[in-house]
Nucleic acid binder design. Sequence first.
DNA 1: TATAGTTGTCTATATCAATAGACATTTAAA
DNA 2: TTTAAATGTCTATTGATATAGACAACTATA
Lengths: 243, 243
Amino acid sequence: MAGQVQRQTGVALWRQIADRIRQAISAGAYDETGMVPPETVLALQFGVNRHTVRSAIAALAQEGIVRAVQGRGTLIERKERLNFPITKRTRFTAGIGEQAREMRGLLLSYSEEKADAEVARGLKIRPGEPVIRMETVRKADGSPVSCATAWFPAGRFGGMPDAYKRTESITKAFAELGLPDYVRATTEITAVHADEADTAALELSPGAILLITKAVNTDLEGVPVQYAISRFAADRVQFTIEN
Amino acid sequence: MAGQVQRQTGVALWRQIADRIRQAISAGAYDETGMVPPETVLALQFGVNRHTVRSAIAALAQEGIVRAVQGRGTLIERKERLNFPITKRTRFTAGIGEQAREMRGLLLSYSEEKADAEVARGLKIRPGEPVIRMETVRKADGSPVSCATAWFPAGRFGGMPDAYKRTESITKAFAELGLPDYVRATTEITAVHADEADTAALELSPGAILLITKAVNTDLEGVPVQYAISRFAADRVQFTIEN
DNA sequence: TATAGTTGTCTATATCAATAGACATTTAAA
DNA sequence: TTTAAATGTCTATTGATATAGACAACTATA
């Protein structure tokens, strides 16, 4: 974990240090002991006062990642970073099935609306045609992993919100609606700072990073069936592309 | 751009606001006027003092994204985002060939070293075997887009640093060294905050976001020829995966 | 040439972030 | 039972962040 923290950047030192420690934990840097190094050691490493390190650790404790025990040290409670393979058969639930015990997709809201230019391009329909929009949040073992906004052609998949609410899975909902299989056509990936809504929904600290995917799924004939913009907590996930 | 900023989170208000405005610009929110709304309007929108908004705009001006003109307003200077397709034939230079006039790869430094566990896993060699490491920065039309650390098996590609320095391209350097074609095997994508070294190399503002790719390229027989960790300025690029 | 609207500069004040040091409290091991 | 090593708590001080208000300087337009 080389490299010093930066001052006067608008990001407090304690937050930078919290981010770095969180990353080191998820990279397995402290697996040998299962503990974060002592505060005095970290303060020396980062070139800051011990109190500043304490602020960082307090933030991580608040997130449930570590637990400080007086006299012993700071224990690591949780270190997951979920991996999402992106392939022709990209599935949210199945993709991380072995990495978490319980995967759930929750429907926050939905509505029927007219496709704007972006959605129309994704679904290969004309702007103004009716689409179903769903806002969802997806959780692994109860911890929120991503928010998604998904659009479906209204004519073919009008029953999607109801089916999704019942099955908590896009794949199962598609199956119920007569589409047993579908494939990932394109995926775009960018990264931005989280805004307020996503910070709340994903239980992030402000200034946190989001990985954004814009994906088009099609049926086996290549007809688009879903356009989705998903927002992932960058410190909890990574994507893998296998060619 | 609804939603208020958050206080006491370790991220200064001016930085949160700068991030939000940057995002709004790149989403085309101000395309109609080509200008950012007046400081007083933004201050009202975000629920902060006008001086706080001014700090945010000063940061964006420092990045070259906007230019404030007394008496007129704050003009948008730049809003582009380069697209990188990730496929079997992923090439940095050719990939964005049509999006920029001039693509260059510059060799910052190189050395011969022994493979650590991560590099050995990527190149499918034993830890400790000799590898060539190159630190490079890649530019589009003179503007830095990414930093990369790349490793090559030393025996087969000892001449890589010299060839790369001459050709400014991995693809051309491989060709010179007797490898006319290669394919992308795997790509991992994550996102983090930029550290000090990358902030300097990519001419970023502190606290900026990096998209990280860890990629393995192989020859046509599937033998790994390159393991590379690239760090992209997230506000200048996006990735596209076509299946 | 006024005038409205905009950015630029200055002073002052309050709060948050960071440093510094001292000492208490708890745990585990000598 | 000591002792070393770790976290917890307290006070004090400095610098960065944020607010508040007033006014100057510049631009475009009526």
